[in-house]
Amino acid sequence: MKNPFDHGGTVFAVARSLGLSPEELLDFSASINPLGPAPGVREAVAAAFDRLVHYPDSDAAGLRAALARRHGLAPQWFCVANGSTELIYLVPRLAAAGRGLIVAPPFSEYAKSLARAGREADYLDLSPADGFALSLSSLDGRLASGKYSLLFLCNPGNPTGRLISRAGVASILDLCRRRGTFLVLDEAFIDFCEEESAVALAAEREGVVVLRSMTKFFAIPGLRLGYAVGHPQTIARLAAQREPWSVNTLAQVAGIASLADLSYPRRTRELVAAERVRLAAGLARLPGLSPFPSAANYILVEITAGPDAAALCRRLLKARILVRDCSTFRGLDGRFFRVAVRRGGENDLLLAALERALAG
């Protein structure tokens, strides 16, 4: 088996390799809402079982209506997809010919989507030395070359957790418009800090599409569900690129049920915010670990002394705990790993296991 720690959510493959069931592993590698799916999702999915004799609604009209209510926009501003990753592979078809620029360290699928579309990818590398801050002047300097028709930016950053304010994103969008660059803004984890979302900016202006995931915040990665927000002309072009019936009936039903529970987002944000602070403090107390500030439900950690990330991951796996080795992210190396923020008792188990693993 290939390195089991170089991508989040490999719990099934790791469990098979160890002769365990997935439920016997504590998975900190995938950053999923620790509350699990919203109440009502299980019942809604079960009640929709008899609909499986029909093809899914290819327009996802019910889900788009629910998203429109959530964001205060009309349904034509939304394109529903089989996870936001499907959209990542579709958006290169929307921009004019040219190279893609990716803000790094990035989600690996950005470069893969550009390659599949026959486009070259370059990177704007951010540095851990200043907390992965993005300089507008550096970005403008790169875009000024005129080579780039697409810019991929994740906010909050994955795996860094670094958040760019909505005002900062507006400045980036203005810069892209001046340089003729289409902005692909990946907000897969913005639900944890929704007040900084740029969805309203995407609704006001062309030249940008915002990608949202429903698998992380709403804890349904096994169903695969995401959506794009943008100007109706952009959304119509994007929707025309999708494969037929890519979003199944149960995923659509689960999405509608998830959005119907108005208290679930508040409870999620309260839990994650409190546990993120507590977990970060616990990580900082361990010798040789330096966690980065995060606005999402995960924390990037630098190893300043002790075993490298790969060795640490192997040691943790003996305790049946899975974390994310970040050495495969561009701009990071074997000193970095990422952990999800889970419930209090689970986070305590991680901290205790890390203490033992660091001691050898």
Rank of each mutant, 00 (worst) to 15 (best):
A15L: 03
P22S: 08
P22T: 09
E24F: 01
P39A: 13
R42T: 03
A48C: 07
F49T: 12
D50P: 03
L52N: 08
D57A: 11
S58A: 12
A61S: 14
R64E: 06
A65F: 10
A66S: 14
R69G: 06
C79A: 15
A81F: 09
I88G: 02
I88V: 15
G98F: 06
G100A: 10
G100M: 04
P105M: 14
K112N: 08
A117K: 11
R119W: 12
D122G: 04
S127W: 14
D130N: 15
G131R: 14
F132C: 14
F132Y: 15
A133M: 09
L134V: 06
L136Y: 04
S137L: 09
S138E: 15
K147Y: 10
S149F: 07
F152H: 12
S165G: 01
V169H: 00
L173M: 10
R177M: 00
R178Y: 06
L185I: 01
A188T: 15
I190Q: 00
E196G: 03
S197C: 04
A200G: 08
A202R: 12
L225F: 07
S246F: 03
S246H: 06
A254R: 09
I256K: 03
D261N: 15
A280G: 13
A284M: 09
G288W: 05
P291Q: 11
S294R: 04
E302D: 10
P307N: 12
P307K: 14
A309C: 08
R314F: 04
A319G: 09
I321W: 07
D325Q: 06
S327A: 14
G334H: 14
R338F: 00
R342V: 03
D348H: 11
L350V: 11
A353P: 05
